[in-house]
Amino acid sequence: MEEQQDQLKVQQDAEVLPKLAVPETAPAPAAAGASIFDVKNTSIYYGAFRAVTDVSLTVHENEITAFIGPSGCGKTTVLRSLNRMNDLIPGARVEGDINYRGVPLYGSDVSPTAVRRRIGMVFQKANPFPKSIYDNIAYGPRINGIRNKGKLDEIVERSLKQAALWDEVKDRLNKSGLGLSGGQAQRLCIARTLAVEPDVVLMDEPCSALDPIATGRIEDLMREIKSRYTIVIVTHNMQQATRVSDRTAFYSVLRDEKNDTRTGVLVEYGRTAQIFEDPHDSRTQAYVTGRMG
């Protein structure tokens, strides 16, 4: 009788904590490439407020690394510190070491502009410039001093093809970029980022405003381009992390009840399959099984 009850309890527990199935399309673990970002004991502040504390992780070449976690856990803050976009926010400050290919990103002689030319970013909300589709893509190369019309044409075509947008817009390259649909506009922004041939592409919830079909296309796109670029993506969608990413970092929020402040922490970082199937931390398990956040 008692044994039966125990068995029942175990079964119930198993039901409460279902494993999140990792689909077949998930990339097979491969040998880790060279490290692109080495983040060591990094804390990020906005003024006196500590947004993220003590993050350490390594991003590998030609992999897709996903940042997941509940709102306010600082995953976007960490992402934006990787190409120094946080510099644009008054009072933002980074403590600790962030190395990009062995070079300290926050070294005194590092130019944020030079950093951002190598490390591009795609934003949550598509932000095409109020220019023609052509000029949107040619914007980055022009900044880099490319004026040759033939060269620009070539870059525009190549970038739009990489972003799987060429067939839809090739007849209206001189029309405004603002006339595109949400998914097209986001792919335009990805093409714009790829046009400068960056080393790394950072993506801040690139699909959060898109429908499943548009999301699927962007995920296909990410898998296609990852052989040439390293991608770090912030996502609220755990399915998306399992579908596209090689590694996953789970962030959570530490609440300080005394001072009523919240700080983001990196809870667990590892292979995506491990994070979702065999999380070592109870908070990760609670999150990936849908019990929290």
Partner: peptide
């Protein structure tokens, strides 16, 4: 909108 400025900064513009 600030998002336009950010988009330009992210491409390495001064």
């Amino acid at each position: 909108p600030d998002s336009l400025r950010q988009g330009s900064y992210a491409l390495g513009a001064t």
